[in-house]
Design a protein around this nucleic acid. Structure first.
Lengths: 230, 230
DNA sequence: GATAGTTTCATACAACTGTTTGAATTGCAA
DNA sequence: TTGCAATTCAAACAGTTGTATGAAACTATC
């Protein structure tokens, strides 16, 4: 029961390296070198490389989910068991965005790791993400209480778009900064959260989707490319 | 100048395998076996594995971008040089969504490949995606003409969210189906396009983002997990 | 039909991967 | 101290990977 030191050293080193260089570029040998432990220690303590990655991701995920549910519970208590829709969405996207964005979070290993996990999506992480459905259902339930009239499908779409905007902002924050030449402030996390929430609320409140006709796309075969520009 | 057969066989086999099993799981030996060509043919015709992947992705990307610009041009011509905002966004997200979603596209190798590329994001593809900024600027320019009063930052956010919703729908279409228990129809592509466009328009038309205070998140260290559930 | 250039092929290479092994070391309880 | 389990360690394992090589087969031109 003694040495958690090796275990935590591996976890810390792995998270740092994965955050900095991605899952594809980091080997177990890199990790044990960074942690100053023996190569076999990883398999001894975690069983396999994938289980190490899974444990890293689960730890951070659990923390985020706990935060989400906490914020949701608080909002529901304040509203007497029925939280307003914007508060629900705030509880959903706030923790993730605050965890991964912002100037103080720039150097946070945990944040950079979660961004990496969001971008690269290796098998052990994908497996865990698939179990997230149950967690999301709690938010659907809260949304149903907040908007009793709304069709269920509309609620799902609203939640889906809220996650879409927050995750895509995390994944592509550098591209958005470059595209907007700095005009989009990715450091003002609170403003981003509010922006995502307000658009999501609009999506939930607005949408009677109209039907329009669009042309269908022809298939494109592969030819020889003379110059590979985009 | 003779044998393009080997070349195209490799491209087709690679696209099919990558689409089905992902980039991480497919080796050059798998590809040449599927294509019935010699192992060395890949390096002979493409130089390296990464260049093969890049060529696959560039071909499909170019096709999508061409389609986008086509639809944009058509909309601008119809509006006398100034397309309405919903038509611009329609031109932006329509081709991608139509290319990757829908019942007829289910078996399309190209579609499944692009979904894979959107999920896994290997280095050669990331490099190409980074050059997409110039292409997106053309849509920003069109949006600026459509909404002359709007702040530039708002336009960037609107475009960003439109891409967020379409890409996330493609990436997570299975999870959304499962979460909603089939209540969200992922086969009605036109409806999805209209939904994404209308939410994006609302985001662009609505947003005076209000300022709210939110609590900051404490850092969570790694402990020992007794049970790895999410 | 000889020649030159292109394409295919079998094979080897060199490096790297996660994992295992069995012996050494450590820590703790009796 | 002795004994036993937990931990660390160096080393090797077994497999896979993308790439390179040099000879063979093909193709088109003269």
């Amino acid at each position: 029961m003694s040495s958690d030191r090796t275990r935590s050293a591996i976890l810390a080193a792995a998270e740092r390296l994965y955050a900095d260089r991605g899952f594809g570029d980091v080997t177990l040998r890199d990790i044990v070198a960074e942690a100053n432990v023996n190569l076999a220690a990883v398999n001894y303590h975690f069983g396999s490389k994938d289980e190490l990655i899974a444990e890293l991701f689960v730890t951070r995920s659990l923390a985020t989910n706990r935060e989400r549910l906490n914020e949701l519970k608080l909002a529901e208590e304040k509203g007497g068991g029925r939280a307003p829709i914007d508060a629900i969405l705030h509880a959903l996207v706030g923790p993730t965005l605050r965890g991964c964005l912002g100037p103080d979070r720039e150097g946070s290993t945990a944040a950079r790791f979660m961004i990496r996990a969001s971008i690269e999506s290796v098998p052990p992480i994908r497996r865990i993400k698939n179990r997230e459905v149950d967690h999301l259902r709690k938010f659907i339930a809260a949304m149903r209480r907040a908007m009793p009239g709304r069709d269920d499908a509309e609620l799902y779409w609203g939640l889906h778009f809220a996650l879409a905007m927050s995750h895509h902002t995390i994944r592509e924050k550098e591209r958005l900064t470059r595209l907007s030449e700095g005009q989009c402030d990715l450091n003002d996390v609170d403003a981003i959260v509010d922006r995502v929430v307000s658009v999501s609320v609009m999506a939930l409140a607005g949408g009677e989707t109209p039907a329009k006709k669009v042309p269908t796309r022809p298939a494109v075969p592969h030819g020889r490319l003379t110059r590979q520009d985009l």
